[in-house]
Design a protein around this nucleic acid. Sequence first.
DNA 1: TATTAGCAGTCCTCCAAGGAGAGTGCTAAC
DNA 2: GTTAGCACTCTCCTTGGAGGACTGCTAATA
Lengths: 350, 350
Amino acid sequence: MDDRKRLVLKAIVDHYIKTGQPLSSQTLLKEYGLDVSSATIRNDMKALEREGLITKEYSSAGRVPTEKGFRFFVDWLVELSELTRPEEHALMESYRLQRQPLEELLKQTALLLAGLSGYAGFVLSPRLEETRLESITWVKLDEESALVVILSELGIVEHRILPTSLSQEELEEIGRWLSERLRGRTLSEVREEAQRYVTEAGEGWHDPRTQSAFQLLRSALERRLERRLYTEGLFNLLQKLLEEEVGLAEVRDIVRLLSESARFGEYLESQIEDSKLQVRIGSENSLRELRPCSLVLMGYGYSGVLGVLGPVRMDYSKACSITQYIGNRLEAILTLSRRAPMEAPEVNPS
Amino acid sequence: MDDRKRLVLKAIVDHYIKTGQPLSSQTLLKEYGLDVSSATIRNDMKALEREGLITKEYSSAGRVPTEKGFRFFVDWLVELSELTRPEEHALMESYRLQRQPLEELLKQTALLLAGLSGYAGFVLSPRLEETRLESITWVKLDEESALVVILSELGIVEHRILPTSLSQEELEEIGRWLSERLRGRTLSEVREEAQRYVTEAGEGWHDPRTQSAFQLLRSALERRLERRLYTEGLFNLLQKLLEEEVGLAEVRDIVRLLSESARFGEYLESQIEDSKLQVRIGSENSLRELRPCSLVLMGYGYSGVLGVLGPVRMDYSKACSITQYIGNRLEAILTLSRRAPMEAPEVNPS
DNA sequence: TATTAGCAGTCCTCCAAGGAGAGTGCTAAC
DNA sequence: GTTAGCACTCTCCTTGGAGGACTGCTAATA
């Protein structure tokens, strides 16, 4: 493709992203100041249309990019921008508190993605079952219940009140014993071990109460190891879709999809190969509801996914750079907070 | 107002709630089988219109209720329904787990409100600063940080990781000391005390490290005592508003309002007197964004608020009964989990 | 006084037709 | 390969009229 045609395409995409309007050959000349006549532009447009990169709504309308046009734009023509000072500042501010519970950190990140991009932001939690246990701590709260706090290399991954009649001392002993024995193992291994302790009788303190404590521990892990999806900035997205004149029915379906975290989460997971930045434009998304939308996404530690969701007519430059920055930042925070890996001790001496 | 006129009004409201369509005098006769002629109905309608209870879109259209008509309906004509078996079941199921962290409980409740009503559900957290402290527990996580868990009569109200260099023993001592001394005081009193410990030097273990621990405790309380708003079922609401042919711009404003928890929360708070069930119809709401909506709400323990948000054309019978049931249920759970009140010990012997 | 039948009148919705305007495609010349 | 000029296409908006649904009013009736 020759240079002028690329320029024409870029002009059409830029103009469409900015205004949402088709661009006519006349206007293109006026606003982008090429040194040829409008007829020449029209010929170029015709060629671009033949290649499927642009289209028009009816025979005598100006041109708008097709999804294929956006794809070409994203792949070859888009320039990533630097973060502005206020953006940089918001980012710093937001991550000031280190070592928050993972849940808070991810929610914060989703908020940040939404706030900076002006679209909806989302964060899918990492596969916790692949992270390694640091400690399990029990705290007696009152006669019948105790709090269990499970810490992995990514921070607090579960805190939960469980009914138990064991004493603080007994719980401490269990906690110490478990932590020492299981530290460095992945959480899914820990869950299996907990399961084993439940079914396996024999050792001294394996009385029914202890067994039930393990049972509860196991089910606590069960629940929390489900991946969770944090979405923020729904309002931003609606605002943009409103400008697109997307129908309320489609908007509703998008909102529904975002509230069905399981379905959307699985989709996100399936879209990530390594943790490179990716863009899915309109109907490149296999989920029907996402057809009016584009997705900018990126992987981070342990199969986590984050990104922004906006209309197809999205400021890809901004969306990509912000996702990139925040993704790298989150990765860094999680890596920093990660302890030096320890030797996983043998659980079953053989 | 005579009986037939009430019947006519009820028919118009029922029909409008069910179909969203105006009701003509003909159709009213056919569907509700009154033993008079359509002209008589028309006369009644005229009277009702004079009283501002019904209106028509144009001179020859059927009648629809005005907001005042809905108000009359809600105040005098609506019949609360019982919960169905599946509804009852969902309610049981959802509250099975006792003594979850407060946050989980309230989120769960919002979900339940949304799920059962088919509208959006919301729960505004209680004024935690008015609840009484049960215990403060510190758990050392690693060299530089510890988890603090603050328990009030409503359950866990804060759990947070704070940086500290104190040892587990020191933290335990502080926790025990604080819990014993402050148990039974309200959280806002506790916060003030923490503040006092920060500024007040002198006593033996008031070394800088301990002071900073108090400082952190204070700020932890600060943050969490803000009231939080849980909203669920946004999709439900959109679905209904779609059927109403509400414009996307209005929908967007509603979504924005729901995401600005501070503003919406304050409004909810202002709408509650004692904890009776209340209904706010359309422009009875002073928030402009809520004009296309009706609010069914109810107070619960310590100035908490919960309810559902739907279109003005809402199934008030269902919405009211569900809000009533769930509100009572949440109240009961919170009261049950509350411990026998204790004497608040003197903090400053004078 | 309350109710009724009958009819005129109002206002909606739907559809078709036509003019103005924007922008392209094509042709022929450079 | 580029350009000027012109015919053509399609949208958008307005206008006008037919058909239909209901009401409001009037005058008669119990």
